[in-house]
Design a protein around this nucleic acid. Structure first.
Lengths: 345, 345
DNA sequence: CTGAAAGCGCTTACAG
DNA sequence: CTGAAAGCGCTTACAG
């Protein structure tokens, strides 16, 4: 047999009991140095490594987290990466699930499958789920016995979230444009139903109001998606609806890119005619034409914080001991302004 | 107690033995319909779901795969997504690990950790690992007891890989430029040591040779990275080294983007003066200025194929039954040409 | 400090 | 078709 050595094999070889082996493996201090040494030698010789499934079963804990995503973009990819790193540091494994469809059944199935796999907590990285957005509202009612944490989802009393402060982002983006002396600042908002899009849009309106330059309805177009194609379309519409615009706050860098292509095609100069700012700071954005002013979001940090918070929930025995909701349930990270040529006119 | 129901609870409630419950859970046909019904009722009432850790231990199988990555980009993100989907379809869970450093110890640690977690196979999605590239060569010698599959790594006799056909990509990219009648076709190659970069570079040279237009040494610059910044730098160098160039084959879209920015700054028109082609077909590429001709790679498919192949290895009992190496050990996917304005002059 | 016993929640032969 | 027994590889009390 070429099977892996078990704790019993080690015990036999070292001439001790299984518990003693277990003790040295788990670093208990109640083992005589010489015993420890003997056991360690046997472990090395047999190349013993504990079977996590067995440990999981006997301990009644898995030290495993689930992470579910869909259609990952640059931002969520970096969150994943941060989540994986932090999970590792904290001694947790991360099981990845891809959601295929947004209907409530798929959602439940994924959640339950993760629970079956003995995950102790789940990280939900899908901002919005098609038409079935409603299910989120019932998250508290889901018969999940394990904590659930949401990324970039509108804070609600019944759920826990870690997100960027999208309102703040909209504020500083618009204020940056205002500080340039621009007078007619348009906005291409992210699609309807997205909390991040709505927050930024609201902030844009508020900032203009505060500056005593309230924006007319036509100054804002809602993009069909977060992609460049939608930006191209939306900017075309803006050109018709809001002539004389001298600045654009795009909901993200890709949409800004699409808008800028349309601008080039129309002979509109950036930033001379229209200053443009995006959100995300993609690695490419510094090399767009012209290089794009944007708001950096540290998505990796988002993933790190999320896992840290989720582990906190797990270890505080969330679900067992129901706790009162407090402001800490919704953690917010902030963006940083990165100024480049697209607004440096 | 609010603990989850176990198979024993169900057995008790249904008035049968545990094995019978196990049979209906696993869909055995050797159960009387009425018995099955009674058991199913108990399962539903108790909301019973089998504990995978226990099943794993008793079956001696985990139906779990490991996937390890680092610094994920658009391509690897999409592979991940495909891998997750396919793993799910095939009934496997996917545990994600992030490699923090490329030294041989970290590599071993990650691999062994995944094995401890009872993974039955590992998908390695890191194309090259810094200075410690050598470890790959010894992959066969690694004392791993489970199959390992590499993504986009140079095929070798001792390992199994699933990759894009980068030589083919270089060939069609260059031939596309030639078909435009361009005479002085430059190349910005990916960094040294990358199989994909070297294959594409070689294909570029071969294609030019075949067209009886052998390229001088100065027509190729090796980028420092796969990022736009490196493309900007490399193109600046090309401008000095290879005056009169009328076409550029960039190793990827980001590098092409960086090169195009430099071109704009120099007043070089694309495609009139220099036609540009990249590789990747990022979602943004269609909205670059000008929209970029490129080679689409179906990274999602890559992930799907990889998992399918890995599961095949697992289920054929790879590692137990050593098999002869055959050409199927190195699977290749091909790119598709997507023509846009950057070469449509 | 160390060990004998029981148990985690399933499944796998083996009887009947 | 159904059940009693043993086992997967660990850990957790409990003795000593």
């Amino acid at each position: 047999m070429n099977r892996r050595a078990t704790i019993s094999d080690v015990a036999l070889l070292a001439g001790v009991s299984k518990q003693t082996v277990s003790r040295v493996v788990n670093g208990s201090d109640k083992v005589l140095p010489e015993t420890r040494q003997r056991v360690q030698a046997a472990i090395d010789e047999l190349d013993f490594r504990p079977n996590m499934a067995a440990r999981q079963l006997s301990r009644g804990r898995s030290f495993t987290l689930g992470i579910v995503g869909r259609n990952r973009n640059y931002v969520s990819t970096r969150s994943y990466s941060g989540a994986a790193t932090t999970a590792d540091e904290m001694g947790y494994a991360l099981i990845m699930k891809e959601l295929e469809s947004g209907d409530i059944d798929s959602v439940r199935q994924v959640l339950l499958a993760l629970q079956d796999l003995q995950c102790e907590g789940i990280l939900w990285t899908i901002p919005e789920v098609d038409r079935s957005y409603a299910w989120l509202e019932q998250a508290g009612m889901l018969e999940l016995k394990i904590p659930l944490l949401f990324l970039n989802v509108r804070p609600r009393a019944t759920i826990k979230t870690v997100s960027f402060d999208h309102y703040y982002a909209g504020k500083i983006a618009t204020e940056h444009l205002l500080s340039l002396g621009r007078q007619r600042i348009a906005h291409i908002s992210g699609p309807d139903g997205w909390w991040s899009a709505e927050s930024r849009r609201r902030a844009w309106g508020d900032a203009l109001l505060q500056a005593k330059m309230p924006a007319p309805q036509e100054a804002c177009v809602i993009a069909q998606s977060w992609q460049a194609a939608a930006g191209y379309e939306a900017f075309s519409q803006l050109l018709e609806n809001y002539p004389g615009m001298d600045a654009l706050f795009a909901c993200n860098d890709q949409v800004a890119l699409g808008a800028m292509l349309k601008a080039h095609e129309q002979g509109i100069r950036i930033p001379e005619d229209v200053a443009v700012i995006g959100v995300d700071n993609l690695p490419e954005s510094a090399f767009f034409f012209p290089p794009l002013t944007t708001l950096e979001q540290d998505a990796r940090q988002l993933g790190c914080n999320a896992v840290r918070k989720l582990v906190g929930m797990v270890e505080r025995g969330f679900g067992t001991v129901p706790e009162r909701s407090n402001e800490d349930d919704n953690e917010l990270l902030r963006h940083t302004l990165v100024v480049r040529r697209s607004t440096a006119g």
